[in-house]
């Protein structure tokens, strides 16, 4: 169960090697979470992450590939068979893809779309259905400001995040009154393994900062946050810029 202060006992991290996801999980374990499922495709990376989380919680590692066409419902079923009720599921799956997708192999773009939108969305639908049956649960979706207004430099990833963000918000509304809620987290530029090869964007932040803001949002029962908070206002402006101007500032 999630307790009265919003803290879960059982946490599932989809994208079990994600820096941001693991930072959130670390905080939740410190706050009392007793079971953690790390689901992902890099077995060695998952085992290493499990080791770093320490012994305060029981840790289960599960194979999961968001890109695969296998029914994600069976992945969710497999997880509940092992740990019972899902109190909190964090979706931290995504693939950035190469810069300037305009020159990219379309098959590679499809992979980014699958990993960032199609796979996570289909998995989250299965998660939501399970949570609806259990009458409680919370979902955290790591979206991105990249999806809030899609830029030329990463429009495949950005459009996939836009899809996921919309999906997550609609899912949250569809779940109203079922005891299940959805928190959408829109980080700005975060320094992680995924962005290590890039130069810092404006208002660059860290996984730890995103994690503390996410846990605070869980305590407060928020349904949408930006990290750092200031990018909310930056995006509010950028979203409404005329195309020609947006092209220049976002290049």
């Amino acid at each position: 169960m999630n307790d009265a202060l919003g803290m879960p006992a059982t946490v599932v991290l989809l994208g079990g090697t994600s820096d941001i996801g693991l930072a959130i999980v670390g905080r939740l374990v410190a706050a009392g979470a007793s079971t953690v499922v790390l689901a992902g495709r890099d077995r060695a990376g998952l085992d290493a992450a499990a080791g770093r989380l320490g012994s305060a919680a029981k840790i289960v590692v599960m194979p999961y590939d968001a890109r695969s066409d296998t029914a994600h419902a069976s992945v969710v079923e497999g997880i509940t068979e092992q740990v019972g009720d899902l109190d909190l599921v964090i979706c931290a799956v995504g693939m950035l893809g190469e810069k300037d997708p305009i020159t990219q192999d379309p098959r590679r773009a499809t992979e980014v779309m699958h990993a960032t939108y199609v796979g996570p969305a289909s998995t989250l639908l299965a998660v939501a259905q399970r949570m609806r049956r259990q009458g409680h649960g919370r979902i955290v979706v790591l979206s991105s400001v990249a999806g809030e207004r899609v830029r030329a430099s990463n429009f495949v990833y950005g459009s996939a995040k836009a899809g996921l963000d919309g999906f997550a918000q609609g899912l949250g509304d569809a779940l109203a009154g079922t005891g299940v809620d959805v928190l959408v987290v829109r980080p700005g530029f975060v320094r992680t393994r995924m962005t290590a090869h890039l130069e810092d964007g404006p208002f660059a932040t860290t996984p730890e900062h995103v994690a503390s803001a996410t846990v605070r949002a869980l305590e407060r029962g928020d349904d949408l946050i930006w990290v750092p908070g200031v990018v909310r206002w930056v995006m509010a402006v950028l979203r409404h810029l005329p195309r020609a101007l947006f092209r220049r500032v976002s290049a």
Binding site: D3, L5, G177
Partner: peptide
């Protein structure tokens, strides 16, 4: 009917028949 229920503190809820 499925209804969301809370305790008197209204912090946290879940749904039940």
């Amino acid at each position: 009917t499925v209804t969301t229920l809370s305790g008197w503190g209204r912090a946290g809820s879940s749904a039940a028949q």
